[in-house]
């Protein structure tokens, strides 16, 4: 009895120590570290490498926010969360922000009391099938066995799609992506469905990726983005505008290579100047210093660089920009003006 009290007191002091009040920004600054919820391992988006360092598209956003707020891209505690624990972890204050390929939906934004602060990846649910099956459209899948990774919106989309097309299917819910792959490759299910980005990432790891096709139908909209607790708008603004800064940086041609040069003195482009803090006081308005965006871009690069480095066409994941190209290139990625 006594012992557990001791342990609680001790561990409470030594291990947790964290305090999550109303003002997340102050907490993060006081702590000197930001807690960022990520997925438990999805290659390209958030996965620990062989040395245990977290890498990926979602991870880069955490690092960007940490460098904007704390000036150190490594001042992040990555908290791996399952689909089940992610919202509780956020609302109970265990993490300061969630960057865990989470789909922005109405009920999550309202009923679960979270705030989505933007979209960093436009995804959609697709199907992958072996070529030898001869399937060319998802509408041919009548009676098929479908592997799904549980705990996401994918189950609901799948049910809606098959219902709307009035065809039958048999769902096989699987806990992790790795196990779903195993089932799929062994033929225990005919098709595998998850977000198209995930399908591409999964297919990239197969022995013979060309033996599998990704069907043309995208059956859902999956805008993935970071989210924060409802009600702390200052913190929400920081996360939102850090993401926007990365996006705007690509549009304006600011890269991690030239950000030091561009940000050293005011240049010709006033928007670059405002973004990098050489003109105006945007940083002050969100409670940070003038160099916040400069640090974020210097730490992880602009949106395009992050994309290319983690999930772009030269990586094993090999995703094309597609919808995620800048609006100037026909995509949907668009940052509001910095002024």
């Amino acid at each position: 009895m006594k012992k557990s009290v001791f342990f609680g007191a001790l561990a409470g002091a030594a291990l947790a120590g964290g305090v999550a009040g109303a003002a997340t920004l102050d907490d993060v600054k006081a702590r000197g570290k930001m807690n960022c919820g990520v997925s438990t391992g999805l290659v390209g988006f958030a996965a620990p490498d062989a040395n245990g360092n977290w890498e990926g598209f979602d991870v880069a956003l955490c690092r960007a926010v940490a460098s904007a707020v704390l000036g150190d891209a490594n001042a992040v505690e990555f908290v791996p969360l399952t689909t089940k624990t992610r919202f509780t972890a956020l609302s109970s204050g265990e993490v300061d922000m969630l960057s865990r390929n989470t789909t922005w939906t109405f009920s999550r934004d309202t009923d679960l009391k979270t705030d989505f602060t933007g979209i960093n990846y436009y995804d959609g649910q697709g199907f992958m099938a072996p070529k030898e099956l001869g399937v060319t459209s998802a509408k041919d899948l009548d009676g098929a066995t479908v592997c799904i990774q549980t705990g996401t919106t994918t189950e609901l989309n799948l049910a809606d799609f098959f219902r709307a097309n009035n065809i039958s299917y048999e769902p096989v819910p699987i806990e992790t992506n790795a196990e779903a792959q195993q089932q799929y490759l062994a033929g225990a299910c005919d098709v595998y469905t998850t977000d198209a980005s995930g399908l591409a990432a999964t297919r990239a790891t197969f022995e013979d990726p060309t033996a599998h096709v990704i069907l043309p139908e995208i059956i859902s909209k999956e805008p993935l983005g970071p989210l924060v607790r409802h009600g702390d708008n200052e913190w929400g603004d920081i996360v939102r505008w850090t993401l926007n800064a990365l996006i705007a940086a690509e549009e304006l041609g600011i890269t991690s290579a030239n950000v030091g040069e561009l940000g050293s003195a005011a240049g010709d482009n006033p928007e670059i100047n405002r973004l990098l803090g050489t003109e105006g006081n945007l940083g002050e308005m969100i409670g940070l210093d003038a160099d916040w965006a400069k640090r974020a871009i210097a730490a992880v690069g602009n949106y395009g660089e992050i994309f290319e480095k983690n999930i772009g066409e030269n990586t094993p994941i090999g995703l094309a920009r597609g919808l995620n190209a800048q609006w100037t290139n026909g995509g949907l990625i668009y940052a509001p003006p910095f002024r």
Binding site: A22, L112, K113, E155, L156, A159, D160, R229
Partner: peptide
Amino acid sequence: AAGLNISFQFFGEPSGYDINQRLIEYDSQ
């Protein structure tokens, strides 16, 4: 603080997902 409440209302709402192994009639509605 989180703006949540305790409510069992969701029990009456459509689940939206399918179950492959079932002993009684059930669909996503």
